[in-house]
Simulated assay, not measured.
Amino acid sequence: MLDTELMQEGLALMAFGMGFVFVFLTVLVLSTTLMSLLVRRLAPAPAADAPARAASPAGDGSDNQELMVVISAALHRYRQRHRR
């Protein structure tokens, strides 16, 4: 084989491989898009989330105090378990 023939076969193989990958990725994107559209169409609408509890007034700090107590207890327990 001559060098030019070898180079032509290499380029042809490269073009075939790149074309195959391009076609595969195009088919993959199209199929994913179609499946997404199908799922959106067939999936039920999400239910509206009801608030779990009424919002507390802005001046009420009991929630913040309770949260600080819980965080402090968790931090204390973590530091006891992970001493150096």
Rank of each mutant, 00 (worst) to 15 (best):
M1T: 09
M1W: 01
M1L: 09
L2C: 04
L2Q: 01
L2S: 01
T4C: 05
E5G: 01
M7R: 10
M7Q: 13
Q8A: 14
Q8M: 13
Q8Y: 03
E9Y: 03
G10D: 11
G10T: 13
G10H: 10
G10K: 13
A15D: 10
F16G: 05
G17R: 11
M18Y: 10
M18H: 06
G19M: 04
G19P: 02
G19V: 01
G19W: 05
F20C: 10
F20H: 14
F22R: 06
F24V: 00
F24T: 08
L25T: 14
T26F: 15
T26W: 12
V27H: 03
V27D: 05
V29M: 13
L30D: 00
L30C: 02
S31N: 02
S31F: 02
T33S: 08
T33P: 00
T33N: 05
L34F: 10
M35W: 04
S36R: 12
L37R: 11
V39C: 03
R40P: 03
R40Y: 05
R40F: 04
R40E: 04
R40V: 00
R41G: 01
L42G: 01
A43F: 02
A43W: 08
P44I: 05
P44S: 14
P44G: 04
A45H: 02
A45T: 06
P46L: 07
P46K: 03
P46S: 03
A47W: 04
A47D: 06
A48K: 03
A48G: 04
A48W: 01
D49C: 03
A50G: 00
P51C: 03
P51T: 02
A52L: 15
R53N: 08
A54W: 00
A55H: 05
S56C: 00
S56A: 15
P57E: 15
P57Q: 07
P57G: 13
P57L: 09
P57V: 13
P57H: 07
A58Y: 11
G59C: 01
G61K: 12
G61Q: 09
G61N: 08
S62R: 14
D63Y: 07
Q65M: 14
E66Q: 14
L67D: 14
M68C: 05
M68W: 12
M68D: 11
M68G: 03
V69Q: 08
V69D: 13
V70D: 03
V70F: 10
V70T: 05
I71H: 04
I71R: 09
A74E: 14
A74H: 10
A74M: 12
L75F: 03
L75D: 11
L75I: 09
H76G: 02
H76T: 08
H76M: 08
R77H: 12
R79E: 10
R81G: 15
H82A: 05
H82W: 09
R83V: 05
R84Q: 10
R84M: 06
R84A: 12
